[in-house]
């Protein structure tokens, strides 16, 4: 197979592998003289355009180690502002913000010895503003908040801040559980320049200048087997 790297010679100039065929000559017991991916190679030579439309080139934005460091920094920043977390609640947004929220809560408890962390998971599906605007119904996840947020300091936690619409929905949804004293926002990735609403995070892991055709994919050890953040080129 042709690896994705050779498609891009320089970041802004796409050149087909037509000019740079990279063939792995791994031997095969049955047919030792043919490269494994000979068929694909041949079709690429015949139709070099295939490469330009080849989807999904992805690049690592944050490695497992960087995520580890960032999580510790975010935990410290939360500590700095909330100290004992007496009147603070962490709210992870379903579905993808819950991993980050769980991770931070665990870190604060185990590494920073905060005794009592109140953590809730909030689903915002029924508060979204794109109901009936897509092809499929919006899929709801479960909400589990077994405390009132009345008079509390709420920290909303999500993995990627993009248009800001999810956070807008979360700001409305959280009111079903009382009137918080204040609400803050923590996100691992902040995609600036793509906001539809005037919403900014109070705590951010990493700021990314991704264009709209690109997608930020956050994977978690608990769910996908490894901690990594990719920038995927669609």
């Amino acid at each position: 197979m042709i690896s994705n790297q050779i498609i891009r010679i320089s970041p802004d100039r796409k050149v087909g592998a037509f000019f740079y065929p990279q063939i792995r000559w791994e031997t095969n017991a049955a047919d030792p003289y043919t490269p494994h991916s000979f068929i694909e190679q041949k079709s690429l030579f015949l139709f070099p355009d295939m490469l330009v439309s080849q989807p999904m080139s992805q690049k690592v934005l944050l490695s497992s180690k960087e995520i580890h460091i960032i999580l510790h920094r975010l935990a410290c920043q939360l500590l700095e502002n909330h100290l004992d977390f007496k009147d603070t609640v962490l709210i992870g947004l379903q579905p993808r913000g819950t991993f980050l929220a769980n991770r931070l809560a665990k870190l604060l408890k185990e590494e920073y010895k905060v005794k009592d962390i109140k953590l809730g998971l909030l689903d915002i599906t029924f508060f979204r503003d794109d109901f009936r605007r897509g092809e499929k119904p919006l899929e709801a996840s479960s909400t589990s908040i077994d405390f009132l947020v009345e008079g509390k300091k709420v920290v909303l936690i999500d993995d990627v801040l993009y248009t800001g619409r999810s956070i807008r929905a979360a700001l409305t949804a959280i009111q079903s559980f009382g009137r918080p004293e204040e609400i803050e926002l923590l996100t691992l990735i902040d995609r600036r320049f793509s906001r539809h609403l005037p919403i900014q995070p109070n705590y951010r892991g990493r700021q990314v200048d991704a264009i709209n055709e690109e997608k930020v994919k956050v994977l978690w050890k608990e769910n996908e087997g490894k901690d990594v953040v990719y920038l995927v080129n669609r």
Partner: peptide, 23 residues
């Protein structure tokens, strides 16, 4: 049923209303 599970949680909140069908 799966959707009803989520709504059952909603109607047991202190504020039992969601804005989905406002139009």
């Amino acid at each position: 049923f799966e959707t009803a599970d989520q709504f059952k949680e909603v109607i047991n909140r202190s504020i039992k209303k969601v804005p989905s069908l406002r139009d």
